[in-house]
Design a protein around this nucleic acid. Structure first.
Lengths: 222, 222
DNA sequence: CAGGGAGTGGTACCGGGGTACCACTCGTGC
DNA sequence: GCACGAGTGGTACCCCGGTACCACTCCCTG
């Protein structure tokens, strides 16, 4: 059973979601919020599996609410829904830590499939948006994994450990990494410990520096 | 009506796809290919709306075939299917110009929805892969044009605080900073606290990232 | 001279980070 | 069949990092 918190300023819209989600056995709406602040509070209180988040709302919007929920280390995954397929919304939402971005004109099955996906830790993007996202992706991501030289220490890391290192390089806490990767914090600590040991780093700060040195992490704003 | 070319080296697999796609009125399998070279030829001949492409095949694999079909300027969209969710496959496929990437364990409705999406020019990624793709995306794509905002935060630091920030960026602990600067650890903590507050950083890890972003710290490969 | 910012230093508290050690499940390879 | 590495998860413990709050000294400026 997947518990869902519905966030939308339109009562009728919330009613529609509740009707749909409660009509199938696998999902259950456990609460409704009418704006961002309320959503953040309720997410912390009832820890739903999935937060169905509208973007445009009076007061705190869905993006900011998403950012706070994710930053708070909540276990809830946020699935952002909007009527407008503006690129800025998509970028902002994903950067805020949303696990998915769907359009409100999605078919009911698509919405349910999306909720199912994010509930187990996967991510979904509306097909109409994916195309543009991929174009940007191809534009930015270097063809070959950057520095050919790299570092032998980097090679000693397993695939998972490299992912953890990248996450450390983003400044995430163990709790945040656990939430985003859908792991327990114990597991994250185990991974982090092994990464530090293999790199010969004393703490995560030195791991971050290593990540920048080998090009695993890259300066953002410029 | 969406015309589909099925490409897979396993006859049984092709049969399964044909069964599924011909069972719904909107799609029709107009051809089958057993390897990459044949796929490229057939795509050019019959110009299907969608090419359902397996990755692992003897001879020319699905990635190379995709690249050639797209490069040839065919109108066909390529939807890549594979059993293995290896990152290299995903990258290579998307770089080759594929419109989508799904796993073979997808449910029939998901596959049909994917074909429908790519047929109209959208793109789809299997939810299980999207998560990692988004992580990379966030890693490479710059957040906002911005840039000037970061510098202002740097300007708000005093001379001493900038020195402290540089030291933090070298991975030094508070104790080490105190020793090198000949200060008490209390003083260092005070400085560090002020630096974090001014930068809006949660901890020294994020301060390190900031230092790299604004160029106060620089990658030191080797 | 008064005021204020910068630099230095202290105490007290606590939460997260890091470590040590162990256990279980997979899948691969011998 | 077995061992092994990778991934995941747990418990227990200690200490550093970060915060809150305060105090004192310079030195510059109004």
């Amino acid at each position: 059973m997947t518990t869902v918190l519905v966030v939308d300023d339109q009562p009728l819209q919330r009613f529609g979601f509740r009707l749909l989600l409660d009509s199938v056995p696998e999902t259950e709406v456990v609460g409704e919020a009418a704006h961002g602040a309320q959503a953040v509070r309720m997410a912390a209180e009832m820890r739903p599996d999935v937060v169905l988040m509208d973007v445009r709302m009076p007061g705190m919007d869905g993006i900011e609410a998403t950012r706070r929920i994710v930053a708070a280390g909540e276990r809830s995954r946020v699935l952002v829904l909007t009527t407008f397929d503006l690129d800025e919304y998509v970028h902002a939402a994903l950067r805020a830590g949303a696990s998915g971005f769907l359009l409100k004109d999605a078919r009911p099955e698509e919405l349910l499939a999306g909720i199912r996906a994010v509930a187990v830790g996967d991510a979904v993007i509306a097909p109409a948006l994916t195309r543009r996202l991929l174009d940007e992706f191809a534009q930015y991501v270097p063809p070959h994994p950057a520095g050919a030289a790299a570092d032998r220490r980097l090679d000693s890391l397993t695939e998972r450990e490299r992912e953890i290192l990248v996450a450390i390089g983003k400044g995430w806490t163990n709790g945040e990494i656990a939430a985003r990767f859908v792991l327990s914090e114990s597991t994250v600590k185990t991974h982090v410990g092994r990464v530090l040991a293999k790199l010969g780093a004393r703490d995560r700060v030195q791991a971050v520096i290593f990540a920048y040195d080998v090009g695993l992490a890259r300066p953002n704003a410029g």
